[in-house]
């Protein structure tokens, strides 16, 4: 049983005009097995939260804490966070030319586990996971994300989530740009990981569509860099009907 605890998190991003405050005091606690959906309009800071948790150098934490079972996550380097059990499925996965998927997966798995995976079982495990996500086995020899379609990139992210078995997975708009078939395949992957590993999931999304496939335990509405409202799955249903208008309208004066 693990706990990821975010307390009063303030994050700014470097821009040409100087640092710009994006997160203005986020509080959130996730434990193993839970799924938290973070919803909100564009520009509300959802993706900033994801990047800041993973340690992207563009984002500066100006105050607040993030702990994983009491360990200070913010003091860790990007790779240390991943090895501690955090996983970020990226909104825009990066191409790495000349590095094959097979080599990448094995290298990452070795780094995360601290030892190389057993050759025979690893091969089988990868093959099976790829099959479940309808990823052609020829992908193993392709360069990471190079020439992948949008859907292929997202399935490749979830493939990693299934293989690396993190304690907590942050899914940054994994659903955006996916057609219904791809969305279902990706969602099945996330649900398999939840079943098999008791992973805690932070599901960042703009739309309610994915919540039909991945059931959240909690829904948080992000507005202007902080959580404006929280509730159970019923909150998502309300958002589906009402949209974000009421939050955006209410938040506008506060941000001045």
């Amino acid at each position: 049983m693990s706990t990821l605890e975010i307390r009063d998190l303030h994050v700014s991003v470097e821009t040409k005009e100087g640092p710009k405050q994006i997160l203005r005091g986020v509080d959130l606690t996730i434990t193993s097995g839970q799924t938290h959906a973070i919803m909100g309009p564009n520009g509300s800071g959802k993706s900033t939260l994801a990047s800041a948790l993973a340690g992207h150098p563009k984002y500066q934490v100006t105050s607040g804490t993030v702990t994983l079972d009491g360990e200070d996550v913010l003091a860790m380097t990007v790779d240390e966070r991943a090895r501690a059990g955090l996983f970020l499925a990226m909104q825009y996965p990066v191409e790495v030319p000349g590095v094959s998927v097979a080599n990448f997966l094995r290298t990452a798995k070795t780094a995360i586990d601290g030892e190389a995976p057993k050759l025979r079982t690893w091969g089988k495990e990868v093959k099976e996971a790829m099959g479940n996500l309808r990823i052609d086995s020829a992908f193993s020899e392709r360069s990471v994300n190079e020439g992948f379609s949008g859907g292929e990139k997202k399935r490749h992210e979830i493939l990693q989530m299934e293989l690396f078995k993190p304690h907590f997975a942050i899914l940054d708009e994994t659903d955006s740009g996916l057609d219904v078939d791809a969305l279902r395949i990706v969602s099945e992957g996330v649900n398999r990981a939840k079943e098999n590993t008791d992973v805690g999931v932070l599901l960042i999304t703009h739309y309610t569509r994915i919540l039909r496939y991945i059931k959240p335990d909690f829904v948080h509405v992000f507005v202007d860099g902080r959580i404006a409202e929280e509730g159970g799955p019923e909150l998502a249903e309300r958002l589906e009907e009402e949209g974000y208008d009421k939050y955006v309208g209410a938040a506008a004066p506060a941000s001045v």
């Binding site: 992207h56 380097t77 790779d79 990226m90 990452a108």
Partner: peptide, 24 residues
């Protein structure tokens, strides 16, 4: 960004740089 992607998968910086240059 390549470095960040690889490091976000637990790969230490030196190994990540190596992978990228080898790939190049």
């Amino acid at each position: 960004e390549q470095l960040f992607y690889l490091m976000a998968r637990g790969i230490p910086e030196t190994d990540a740089r190596r992978l990228v240059v080898r790939g190049f």
